[in-house]
Simulated assay, not measured.
Amino acid sequence: MTDAPRLGRPRASSPETIAEAACELFFEQGYDGTSIGDITRRAGVARASFFNYFRAKSDVLWSGFDARLAAAFSAMIAGVPVADALARIGRDLTPDTLALAITNADAMGLGDELERQRAERLALLQREIARRLTDATGDALFAQIHAAAYGAGVLGAVWMWAERGASSESLEGLLQHALSLCERFGASGDSSAAALA
């Protein structure tokens, strides 16, 4: 299905405009059946505009979360404790394309794609957090295990938030609970972890 060309002045490009067009198409044609060209035509923007904001089609769903993740990693590098940096991910987050994708994965034809992308973020979380924890504790194995718990806690909270109805509940509260469980694990696993939480 092709959209008729839009007449008049082109729509101003923004990541929100492009994401909205992409999500409409994912519902109509499925994720695999939607190309970047389809998205840019629906959004009324040039293909280059898509790549100003996103590296790939999957980034449309994850861009808000990925930006918060990058900010959390920067905070850790600046010396903010791991749990505090991760807690910021949920602060004032409103329902976005990721929450929409989680609750409508079947209708959007995401299938295994969303789980694959989730696994990629879990690996990224584990790698980045383990670096920080290894530097702080000197115990690389503890750092890997604790980092995996933190990553699972963050993504588990995001999924639960979306599935419970993201607009009716704050991610911040769920994330705080998940992180407190991770801190408990760390405190029982190694006494030096208390300084990191």
Score class of each variant (00 low, 15 high):
residue 79 G to K: 08
residue 47 R to D: 13
residue 51 F to V: 01
residue 124 L to T: 15
residue 138 G to C: 09
residue 94 T to F: 02
residue 63 S to W: 14
residue 18 I to D: 05
residue 34 T to S: 00
residue 163 E to D: 11
residue 195 A to M: 13
residue 82 V to P: 00
residue 190 D to E: 12
residue 148 A to K: 15
residue 176 Q to N: 12
residue 99 A to Q: 13
residue 54 F to Y: 15
residue 151 G to T: 09
residue 111 G to C: 10
residue 190 D to K: 06
residue 25 L to W: 12
residue 142 F to I: 02
residue 75 A to F: 04
residue 130 A to L: 04
residue 38 D to S: 03
residue 95 P to S: 01
residue 193 A to M: 02
residue 192 S to K: 15
residue 195 A to D: 14
residue 142 F to N: 11
residue 135 D to C: 02
residue 167 S to W: 12
residue 119 A to Q: 15
residue 4 A to L: 12
residue 107 A to C: 10
residue 82 V to E: 02
residue 120 E to F: 04
residue 18 I to K: 04
residue 51 F to D: 12
residue 167 S to T: 13
residue 100 L to S: 09
residue 188 S to K: 14
residue 16 E to T: 08
residue 129 I to M: 03
residue 190 D to C: 03
residue 128 E to N: 06
residue 107 A to L: 13
residue 52 N to K: 14
residue 99 A to M: 08
residue 193 A to F: 03
residue 102 I to E: 09
residue 14 S to N: 06
residue 191 S to Q: 15
residue 69 L to T: 09
residue 75 A to G: 08
residue 41 R to E: 14
residue 27 F to N: 04
residue 111 G to I: 07
residue 80 V to N: 03
residue 196 L to Y: 04
residue 188 S to C: 13
residue 3 D to G: 00
residue 133 L to S: 00
residue 48 A to S: 14
residue 21 A to R: 06
residue 172 E to Y: 07
residue 139 D to F: 03
residue 161 W to Y: 01
residue 142 F to W: 13
residue 105 A to N: 10
residue 44 G to C: 06
residue 119 A to K: 14
residue 88 R to M: 05
residue 134 T to N: 10
residue 35 S to R: 13
residue 65 F to H: 10
residue 31 Y to P: 01
residue 151 G to P: 04
residue 126 Q to S: 09
residue 41 R to V: 04
residue 114 L to A: 01
residue 93 L to T: 05
residue 84 D to P: 10
residue 26 F to S: 01
residue 78 A to V: 05
residue 108 M to G: 01
residue 166 A to M: 07
residue 104 N to K: 09
residue 76 M to Y: 10
residue 64 G to M: 09
residue 196 L to S: 05
residue 185 F to C: 02
residue 12 A to T: 14
residue 121 R to I: 08
residue 135 D to Q: 12
